[in-house]
């Protein structure tokens, strides 16, 4: 049996993990790929249903993602579980992530990977067009 500390220290790493899907891309316009997706819901508690998703962020990029019906369809299936999806640009990479996951629920989510992959296609296409 593992030794469980009865008085754990109130600091240190918590049992929450973040899964970042990273696209390695370097362009002058990396900062333009800033967006966040949130669900639009109707009702409360048990009757809460998702009716649509809304992308906010840099205008052009958010519009491109909002216009992709396939992506919206994929998001409708997972967004209630994932909570929100953020596209966070860095200097030489772009990170796509959802919300923090507890250690117990940390498993590879294939649906989330497909969504991140589709967003990555849009980013690559936009970089090619600009370049």
């Amino acid at each position: 049996m593992p030794n469980i500390d009865p008085t754990p220290l109130p600091y240190g790493p918590l049992q929450y993990y973040h899964v970042h899907f990273i696209l390695e891309i370097k362009s002058n316009d990396n900062d333009k790929f800033l967006a966040r997706c949130k669900p639009i819901t109707k009702g409360y508690f048990d009757s809460r249903r998702m009716i649509d998703v809304k992308w906010t962020g840099e205008d052009n990029f958010a519009q491109v993602l909002q216009a992709d019906a396939t992506l919206t369809g994929m998001l409708k299936e997972v967004i209630m579980k994932v909570g929100e999806i953020t596209v966070d640009p860095q200097e030489d990479n772009i990170r796509i992530y959802g919300k923090w996951v507890h250690e117990e629920n940390l498993v590879f989510d294939a649906a989330m990977f497909e969504i991140a992959d589709r967003i990555a296609i849009h980013i690559k296409n936009m970089v090619q067009k600009r370049g």
Partner: peptide, 13 residues
Amino acid sequence: GKNIDFVQLLQRN
């Protein structure tokens, strides 16, 4: 073989 190049795991402090 995918558009995503890496997956990174981060733990909250």
